[in-house]
Amino acid sequence: MSLVVDTIESGYDRAPILTGVSLRVDPGEMVAVVGSNGAGKSTLVRTISGLLAVRSGAITVDDVAITKLAPERRARRGVVMVPEGRKLFPQLTVGENIAMGRRAGRGRTSGEDPVDALLDTFTILRERWGQQASLLSGGEQQMVALVRAVAARPRYLLLDEPSLGLSPLKTLEVFQLIELVRERTGAGILLVEQMADQALAASDRAYVLEHGKVAMEGDAATLRASDEIRRAYLGVA
């Protein structure tokens, strides 16, 4: 029972960006993907969510192949992505955005609603409920995007650069929220993050992507401590 990516190849136009990437996310665990720009991190999550077609290889969710499914059908199976740049529906209200998230979760609504728990913690979203999403600040937008994804009842959650463009304080808050999401939903989380240090600190395991391939993988804390990683990605000489 896990999200398994098996030696996939994908990319834009002619040139492949991912050349044989394999990884696994188990329910309830947080897995970070770090790597330099152009290594294929965003391509990876876009391929798993179905926005980019797979050229070869396979993606399975709990032993069911989703390799050829359209993004909407993957979402309905519980593979939910929070895209880079939040991508809220700008002219819908906060409430309507979250209602859109619930559409993907229809039919998998057993148990208590994790959305309520999140809204109780981050009350600011309740205050903003009727506001147009485009009027929110970047940090609030990221929160709505996360809650919207939770409303979709994810089994596996793909987060693409959640800290992008956020102030240090907001980044801290967003990472707190991600941790809370993991507790409440029990979903496996794949976290793609530019802030390698924070991502590794928050995760259980991690993959290092280089030139469209997995260069290293393992325990997040171990990787975070390794000299090679510190030199290449954490900016430590």
Binding site: P71, E72, V80, F89, M100, R103
Partner: peptide
């Protein structure tokens, strides 16, 4: 109606709508 909400969402961002389980096509 919910259908109207879907229509408005698709018009604003079809790609993200597909991530919400909606088929923009």
């Amino acid at each position: 109606t919910p259908m109207g909400l879907v229509m408005r969402a698709v018009s604003q961002d079809p790609e993200t709508a597909s991530l919400m389980g909606v088929s923009p096509r």
